[in-house]
Design a protein around this nucleic acid. Structure first.
Length: 586
RNA sequence: GCGCUUGUAGCUCAACCGGAUAGAGCACCAGCCUUCUAAGCUGGGGGUCGCAGGUUCGAGUCCUGCCAAGCGCGCCA
């Protein structure tokens, strides 16, 4: 319908051009909007307001001329000039009913679009270090990323979901060493635990498992571990130096192969847990991309070589620097340390080099908002690698604050006392967790009320939306129990019987679903889907309360049932997109 | 100090990337509960869109300055 009106206006503009009212050089961008107020008709265009200046005309007079030049069309019953120069279009009511047929015919496909034209989009999200279980902060990134990916797929993009596994680097060594020390305790060795080690219970659990399966294969005497060890922080030493020395000691005492095995067991265990966790949360990936592989196969060297060729690298103070400040970053960044090791940033450059080489049209990175300072340097790298900076889009996700009713849930990463994603899922369930996470704009700080998420009242939006679906199922069951049957054709023939304001409002809302999806995808805003579903549920519940569906009049009854089933279909399509269940009974 | 993000009803948040009278839910107030699910329903009050300028037919939305909150400013990841 939008396209139709757009076409009508285009014709009107063309004829005004030939008449000389509008200059030939004017190329209007025709914007048709759905009106918010039914008094303003169904669609409106601000064209006259926009053209007033270049055409040097009074907007209202110009609007009148445009209206006069509009070709007749059966679908439009009235065109009105309003306000400062808006052109309002009133659509033939019969056209509104078409949406019911369309939804009925397209079913689960209703709302899908081809606007993405098959363009390849990569969405990288979560990518938490595999040094421990995911916590509730990662949960939001997981929900946001997965819904965004599905949304883009629904809009016709070819989507590649990816998790970047930081399986190299110092944090992983700290983890491996932490597990080893706990393992030695399991073996019966007595030794202090480093203040900078990973203290979570999961570390002990992994250590215990290893001890059970491998026995004392990795056991070394505590004396040798402790020998000549620099002091830890509580003893007045430097905790970083202490842990680094412990890592080195572990490598020496175990030897390369055993250390690597041990490291790998820890990594596999935690990464496996993360994969299970995400899968149960309804989040799956096409690819788990290993950082270590980049290191091992020379990709980092290759990426750096390309930067060097472009003249973006230089040496200073024994380290190798990337001149990112030339490309918008606030200062230059080290890529190879004085000790010859790559920085995390170096492998990240290589990772993005790899992404570019894979030929994605758009690369989307979803990060926690605390990483925002990292954006300029990665963008600089993209440019230095010879790509268009626009190819990379970094989307930030703010942290969520957990509440139980009024009470704030305290969290502390240091002590290892954080709420894990798994705990959250156990408490509120997958559906509520996903819904709540995606309900707010991602850049918005959000309060996540655990109590509300589990309550079975209308205050709980998940409940409210799912209940709308279940309620429709219930109506259909009622029909069945009464021995009635739907006559879809009879209903379709009698759609014009739907004249109540609630019914017209629902028709308009249903018609908006495809546009809403498209917009949500292009703007990377999954929350629009949630808001839409809430609105649809609200309008449905209101309708339900105002009018009985299972009336005696068969024509009216079937017309209403067709409308209600269209609502059911759209609720299902939206909830499926969010990967949230559609319960038939509640 | 510099940078990024945020600031809208008492609270939690919207506002279709400049449009018409800024909208929901909760809370509050007033009515209603013999119904296809009361796990409520209907209606109502409530706003200097952080502050001050600017841009234009039009600004919550854009630009500038200021105020406040969160986050970030390592040869950590």
């Amino acid at each position: 319908m939008k396209q139709k009106i757009e076409e009508l206006i285009r014709q009107a503009v063309d004829s005004l051009k030939t008449e000389g009212v509008l200059g030939q050089d004017i190329v209007p961008q025709i914007i048709i909007e759905r009106t918010r107020d039914a008094q303003h008709g169904d669609f409106a265009s601000n064209l006259a307001l926009v053209l007033a200046k270049p055409a040097k005309a009074n907007p209202r007079q110009l609007a009148e001329k445009i209206i006069a030049a509009l070709p007749e069309d059966a679908a439009i019953i009235k065109v009105e000039l309003a306000g400062p120069g808006f052109i309002n279009f009133f659509v033939n009511p019969n056209a509104h009913y078409q949406i019911i047929r369309r939804i009925h015919e397209q079913g689960p496909d209703f709302g899908l679009s081809r606007i993405g034209a098959g363009k390849k989009v990569q969405v990288e999200f979560v990518s938490a270090n595999p040094t421990g279980p995911l916590h509730v902060g990662h949960g939001r990134g997981a929900a946001y990323g997965s819904v965004l990916a599905d949304l883009l797929a629904a809009a016709g993009f070819t989507v590649h979901r990816e998790y970047y596994v930081n399986d190299a680097g110092r944090q992983m060594d700290i983890l491996a060493t932490s597990i080893w020390l706990r393992y030695l305790e399991e073996c019966g060795e007595v030794l202090p635990f480093p203040s900078n080690g990973y203290r979570g219970d999961y570390v002990r659990d992994i250590a215990r498992d290893i001890h059970q399966s491998a026995g004392n294969d990795y056991r070394r005497p505590a004396v040798l571990v402790q020998e000549d060890m620099p002091a830890d922080e509580p003893q007045g030493g430097d905790k970083e130096a202490h842990i680094d020395a412990l890592i080195a000691r572990a490598k020496t005492l175990l030897g390369f192969n055993l250390y690597r095995d041990f490291f790998q067991i820890g990594l596999n265990d935690i990464l496996g847990d993360i994969k299970d966790d995400l899968h149960e949360f309804g989040v799956d990936y096409q690819q788990w991309f290993s950082e270590r592989q980049l290191m091992d196969d020379g990709s980092v060297d290759k990426a750096l070589a390309q930067l060097r060729e472009g003249g973006h690298l230089y040496e200073k103070d024994g380290a190798l620097w990337f001149a990112s400040s030339q490309l918008g970053d606030e200062k230059d960044r080290v890529v190879v340390r004085e000790n010859g090791q790559y920085t995390y940033f170096a492998s990240d450059i290589a990772y993005h080099h790899n992404k570019l080489a894979r030929g994605f049209d758009q690369i989307i990175d979803i990060w926690g908002a605390d990483h925002h300072g990292y954006i300029p340097r990665v963008r600089a790298a993209i440019i230095a690698l010879g790509a268009d900076a626009e190819k990379l889009k970094v989307l930030l996700v703010q942290f969520a604050t957990l509440y139980r009713g009024e009470e704030k849930v305290q969290m502390s990463t240091r002590s290892g006392e954080f709420v894990t994603l798994r705990q959250l899922r156990n408490e509120v369930g997958k559906d509520a967790a996903r819904f709540f996470y995606v309900m707010r704009r991602s850049e918005q700080h959000m309060d996540f009320d655990l109590q509300l998420a589990t309550s079975r009242t209308n205050e709980n939006p998940v409940f409210y939306v799912q209940y709308a679906y279940a309620r429709i199922c219930s109506v259909l069951r009622q029909l069945d129990e009464k021995g009635g049957q739907r006559d879809i054709d009879l209903g379709m023939d009698n759609l014009p019987r739907l004249v109540e304001s609630h019914e017209l409002a629902l028709l308009a809302l249903l018609a908006r679903y495809p546009e809403m999806l498209e917009k949500a995808a292009l703007q990377y805003e999954p929350h629009q889907v949630v808001l839409y579903l809430r609105e649809l549920a609200t309008d449905f519940h209101t309708y339900y309360n105002a009018h009985a569906f299972l009336v005696d009049d068969a024509a009216l009854r079937n017309a209403r049932l067709n409308l209600v089933c269209a609502v059911k279909q759209v609720l299902a399509n939206g909830l499926n997109l969010l990967n949230i269940n559609t319960p038939e009974v509640m």
